[in-house]
Design a binder for these strands. Structure first.
Lengths: 312, 312
DNA sequence: TAAAAATACTCCATAGGTATTTTAT
DNA sequence: ATAAAATACCTATGGAGTATTTTTA
């Protein structure tokens, strides 16, 4: 809690450092681009505000006193820290740097971000991402509360104060037990679902609304017996023959293909059966260009997954 | 080599920190003891000079942008460093602190300073001594060249620009082979020396002049065959029966009593046969009170050695 | 529409310049 | 005696104040 003002200025410290380097008031003044009297006055003022004699004055090269040397060493540290701020500024202006706090949906982040982080570390070594997962509804609230700088979530999102960068559409596949009748159908279509029981996530998830909408349209009904809190839980329920469900493509790629063979996933026709994913931030956050840059980077990573349809 | 000026001030950084702490321009201004518009202007100016938006403005609590947080973290570091300078200032004003570069005579330092350093570390934990040994003549030159902040050496020293703190008189004992005739005499006096051969150090040492003077007065003669460059060398030459010599009391206590029994040391009567030891510094160095404090500390340590006569 | 920050302006403290004096060797 | 730093004095920049307008949720 440093609220008290310091009795010296960076400028004075800089002059002291120049004086130690040049060992002459005249030369130090020149190095600082000011006149000798101006530098004398500032050094004197620094000595008075510290209550210490910093310089041994006399003919020939001046020397710092012991106190002067001690102060000067720390002055250099401070000025270096100042230069560090300036260096950081350049990074922050022109690209992605520092630490970004990013929130991601639990239905997407774990299956996409590991790939993004690897690529980012190569293309933007200065950037560090703090990734926190939550359900989309919570993400939005936390974004408004300032917990996150930006979130990676399903679109659309409400709020005029938010900026969005669309990233890609992620198809939803229909997951069913391995011995289910529909597992023989290559491209399942809406009518195939009529009368089926569909398992869904809790309403905290955007996916829940979407699944409900699909079911209403196709004549399937949403199970009210059970609501999952993770995609893994849904998959296990499907494997136990409690119903069917929709799983996002990246989850399928990451957790099912070549790994879990307790369920079968069949693709859907048409764009309706996909979800739209984007980056969202507060319009007031003032880092639009940096965040657009991050969006680009994520799209670059997404390009590696042919099942995704790039947008934005 | 940081000679370029920074485009921001400590004051601005302090305002930024206050803004992050209070989350309101109004409260931050109050915490800084200025008006809200003044703080607004400074924050704005800081943002402009960095070319970054640091604050998310809006109704309710303000938030720093990602860039703002990064800058602010380093700003806190800088301000803490500034406070560190202030803390150090207090130490330097009121006592002994930081690192002092001290030169000491090789005929004294190794036998006194280990005791002093131990005591100092207890009484002045903030102080660090860099001790460098040299012959007295070199010490004086190095002091004037600014190599040392102060020196511990034999008095008197020449030079109107030097300040001196007398510490103590250190008796000189006469060292002789164990089987020497004078070893039977308890308190050797001047006339006993007539006709003896006395070994001396090189003329770089103040002790050399003093031994010469004693010899001239007592009718002893100084050996021109050999000049030692250390007290240990002199002692060994005495043990080899090449002559007698004078050894300072602290050397005798440290290196002969209870350790080397190849020579015998007999005390002398009278103050002429002692040397005066003091601290010397450049009068222009402006740290008189600190150095007087160090002198006091050394006298305190010297009090533990009854053979020394305190002065000053 | 109310609360909060930004703007407009004025004032004054202070950093900086030039001319000159003082100091130290 | 002379080179270097300190002092004196003036100017101008900019930090801070008050009054007011603009913004935004």
């Amino acid at each position: 809690m440093q609220t008290s003002s310091l009795p010296f200025t960076l400028r004075q410290l800089r002059y002291l450092v120049a004086l130690e380097d040049t060992r002459h008031f005249r030369e130090a003044a020149e190095a600082c681009g000011i006149s000798q009297p101006s530098l004398s006055v500032q050094i004197k003022s620094l000595e008075e505000s510290l209550g210490l004699t910093l310089v041994e004055r006399g003919r020939g090269p001046v020397r710092l006193t012991q106190a002067g040397r001690e102060i000067c060493r720390r002055a250099r540290d401070m000025l270096d820290a100042g230069q560090g701020i300036l260096d950081l500024t350049a990074t922050l202006q022109t690209g992605l740097g520092g630490t970004l706090r990013m929130g991601t949906s639990t239905t997407l982040g774990p299956y996409l971000m590991p790939h993004v982080v690897g690529d980012l570390h190569k293309s933007h070594p200065e950037l560090r991402l703090y990734i926190r997962e939550a359900a989309p509804r919570d993400l939005l609230r936390e974004l408004n509360d300032g917990v996150h700088d930006l979130i990676l979530t399903q679109l659309p999102v409400a709020g005029a104060t938010l900026s969005v960068a669309r990233l890609f559409r992620e198809p939803l596949g229909l997951a069913m037990p391995v011995d289910h009748a529909l597992s023989a159908v290559d491209n399942v279509d809406g009518p195939d679902l009529t009368g089926q029981t569909i398992l869904s996530l809790s309403p905290n998830y955007a996916l829940h609304d979407q699944i409900s909408a699909i079911c209403m349209e196709t004549g399937a009904h949403v199970s009210r017996e059970y609501e999952g809190t993770s995609l893994d839980a849904l998959r296990q329920m499907v494997a136990l023959d409690m119903g069917l469900t929709f799983l996002p493509a990246l989850y399928v790629r990451s957790e099912i293909e070549g790994r879990a063979n307790d369920v079968v996933v069949r693709p859907f026709r048409g764009r309706r059966f996909s979800r739209s994913i984007g980056l969202v931030w507060r319009a007031s956050s003032g880092a639009t260009s940096a965040f657009e840059g991050l969006a680009s980077a994520i799209r670059d990573t997404a390009r590696r997954f042919p099942e995704l349809v790039l947008e934005g």
